[in-house]
Design a binder for these strands. Structure first.
Lengths: 215, 215, 215, 215
DNA sequence: CATGAATGAGGTTTCATTCAT
DNA sequence: TATGAATGAAACCTCATTCAT
């Protein structure tokens, strides 16, 4: 039996550990959420113990996602905070946004699965608890952009939202299960040799060029 | 016992009927594929009969999706086929593309679920059989756009792909299970009052403005 | 549509053809009876047509088995019919019996499956219709042996029965699905390198040496 | 909900209970393996619980069979272990072997079905895990016999194998589904009034008389 | 706190046989 | 006779969650 986690730090550490394990397992097969049993076993904990820290399997992955959202929006804040020329900021945003996502490969995987698997199964209260964190942060970022680029109120949020839509969509189009990548036909697929990082950066720049107007 | 579908037409009709029933059931809960049992019951057929027409449940929904892809790409062809000014074509594309999707609400639902549920479960051969239809059609549309807008080869496909990414992403951001829409917090959600049709049209115009350059 | 078989000969030919096809399919996987669908397809007939000739799938395989029994008992008759020394006859029996079975590999396969799959599913009347043919033939052979070896009445039948038991048991011990033969452990199996023909001959000789007494 | 089986003993007891129930159900219809659902219901357990103790339905019956093999080979060991005259040992073997099987009526039923149902469906690894136990025990018994009867190495194993073949074959010839036994024709069947115990003993003695030579 | 045994609903697919054509 | 579409029972196993210990 694992030592009891009594102090708050110990409990937090255990919770963090579970999240790390869950993420690792998820990355081995991003088409389905790993089983609680697998998470427990790999954590060195019992199945019941997982439920002392998270109220459901979906809760675990929603937590992971919330974590990542935090990081991503931090990047956005960064890009639009200095005192640079508008275009410079936008360029920087495209660059760093794409780079961040490329270097956090689980984020879009989780996020895409979240749409299909998490949202449907989280109880509404829990769903909104997570969503609200994100939404308020997002609104904040929107206003940061408004200020940075002298947009009318709300425009920054709109662009950010659409950028994110483009990002998620692009990811999904280029993502295929390994079994399908192995198929001979895969090479003919127009999305086969896409480099997500480059492609996203380019697409974002195109979008902002059109949406932010001649800045 | 249901009457035997002997002729090719009767068989096609039955197949179409199954697809229609499957779609209808799917629309009642777009977060999961309906059970074969439900499809059979609602079709007035036996479960085994369904398998005479489709080799698996996923096959049914992949067929539905293929059908819809066809329609959507037809719209694209339409928009870029006449002899209009480039900007006119793009405007038309944004308008009709968004309108088509708004009036075919199941398409993006299916497509989004397809990412998580169909791709993962279709056997690779079947997956590629469907995908190839779509891919070749898509490439064709790309070249139609190249010609219409005097793009260098491949550019049309790129823009179309990214437009589609934007579309799918936007859809997903605005789509929430009914249980979540009912929640009091929903109103505060920045995507709450989005009108998908308007929003998509706008976003597409923005993107093409930036990507197709001053045309 | 296949031509109608009107004459008795044509019908018999068709029936024989079905049997041949069924046997061929069975030999490809002797652990299960082939599906009626497969038999029909390979016969170039429709599924319903099969049922015009055989009342059930099991009926097909029972017919095959009956056929084979016939041949095997013919061999026995042969061995004990001439005017030879008793031991000579027994030697001949062991030799020819084993040889016949080795050269009719489907017989024991069918027979062994028959125990588990056919007997259970044939309706009693049909079961006994087949069994009776065999039983009366067997009794006859028994009395042939009685005469040939000057046994008391019934002893021949007993020895024949036990010989057949030994044969079937030996076959089953040495028979393994291909998937299991492929396993590395198979080599260590004491029955791995048995040559059925040799082994059976030897075992029969041993049995008859003990059972037929010093003859 | 059933009480938790925490200790090793309790778990073993539960496992044993499941086996007992499975066997009981099997004996009611020895032509097919009972469904997991039936086993669970009769055990007073949930279906899922069965799978905590056995990885598949076939695993259950393979375990039963392994258990029985153990007992049977124990009998063999017994017969050839003392310091008796060779013929005495053989007589004892025939007697006790036949008696053991008669008093464990499920053994040969399971074993015969095992040929058709278990071997085909157990995954190779699991199959060989069971088989190996048996094979090594069998080899051991072979060498015990070699020593007891001063055979050349391997001869004991051969005789044991063939004895077992004879046994299994004999069983199958005399075994008929109840529905078939009830049929009026059954009486005419030469195996109808066989007493398996007596018959097997006799047949074994005959075989060993011929195979073990004048001892 | 931690454990892990128990639960049981849930859903896909196969295939022998029938019967409308 | 021949066809082949329709039937529908049958059975496995998984896994999130609970709760007795």
């Amino acid at each position: 039996m694992v030592s009891h986690a009594t102090s708050i730090e110990e409990k937090e550490a255990r919770s963090t550990h579970i999240l790390a394990v869950a993420l690792e397992l998820f990355m081995q097969d991003t088409r389905r959420l790993p089983t609680v049993d697998a998470i427990a076993r790999k954590s060195g904990l019992a199945k019941g113990t997982i439920y002392l820290y998270f109220s459901s399997k979906e809760h675990i992955f929603a937590s992971l996602l919330a974590q990542e959202w935090h990081g991503l929006l931090g990047v956005v804040a960064d890009c639009f905070s200095g005192a640079m020329a508008a275009q410079k900021m936008i360029d920087q945003f495209a660059l760093k946004f794409a780079r961040y996502l490329s270097s956090h490969p689980y984020f879009l995987r989780l996020d895409s699965m979240g749409y299909a698997l998490l949202e449907a199964k989280l109880p509404p209260d829990q769903f909104w608890a997570f969503k609200n964190q994100f939404v308020s942060h997002l609104k904040l970022m929107g206003s940061v952009i408004d200020r940075a680029l002298s947009f009318e109120a709300g425009r920054g949020l709109t662009l950010l939202t659409r950028s994110y839509a483009l990002t998620r969509g692009l990811w999904q189009l280029g993502d295929h299960p390994d079994t399908h990548r192995a198929h001979p036909n895969f090479a003919e697929h127009p999305f086969a040799q896409i480099d997500f990082n480059t492609d996203l950066k380019e697409a974002l720049l195109e979008y902002w060029a059109g949406a932010a107007g001649p800045v």
